[in-house]
């Protein structure tokens, strides 16, 4: 960004020394010097030294204030730039973070899906196992019931006229 050159007394040194510029800078300086010299010779030179001082004093004061304000603005500008840079960095960081999060989220979703698949498979397997265990338990319960019935029947005395007994077998 190029700051506009402040109005300057012709006899004052230029702030910051020689200005950097393009190839037209010496010409502009030369033209400005001419205008300043013309203004001086037509407006200032005819005034008395006292008058000149009286005219110049408030101008100088305003000039000083302006310079001060300019300095402050420059400082604010620098600060703003830093803030902008900071914001940009933050934004970049956030964006990066967001991208990372998206990637992480996608990876996490994929992982979750994988886990869900595994869980489903495990559940299916458990269901099958459970059904098999249920069948097994039911079968075992039936056998226990049969065994109990058998035991109750055996507890009753065997009928006396068992053919094997009768046949002596």
């Amino acid at each position: 960004m190029t700051d506009p050159a402040p109005a300057q007394e012709a006899d004052e040194p230029k702030p910051g020394g020689a200005r950097k510029g393009g190839s037209g800078a010496p010409a502009r300086r030369k033209r400005r010097g001419f205008l300043e010299a013309l203004a001086f010779s037509t407006v200032v030179q005819p005034l008395s030294k006292r008058m000149r001082r009286a005219v110049a004093r408030p101008i100088m004061k305003r000039l000083a204030k302006s310079r001060l304000r300019l300095k402050e603005m420059r400082a604010e500008l620098v600060a703003s730039r830093e803030q902008i840079a900071e914001i940009r960095r933050t934004l970049d960081a956030l964006q990066l973070q967001s991208v990372r999060r998206e990637k992480d989220a996608a990876a996490a979703a994929a992982e979750t899906r994988k886990q869900m698949t595994q869980i489903r498979a495990a559940l299916d397997s458990l269901r099958v196992q459970s059904a098999e265990a249920g069948k097994e338990a039911k079968a075992m319960a039936e056998i226990v019931e049969r065994s109990l019935l058998t035991a109750r029947l055996r507890a009753a005395p065997k009928p006396a006229d068992s053919p094997r007994d009768a046949a002596g077998g």
Binding site: R146, T150, L153, K158, P159, A160, D161, P163
Partner: peptide, 16 residues
């Protein structure tokens, strides 16, 4: 299942 025919298995007068 042997209980299905258990009655016959202990019935007197039946040869098994």
């Amino acid at each position: 299942d042997p209980l299905f025919v258990a009655r016959l298995m202990r019935m007197p007068g039946v040869f098994r």
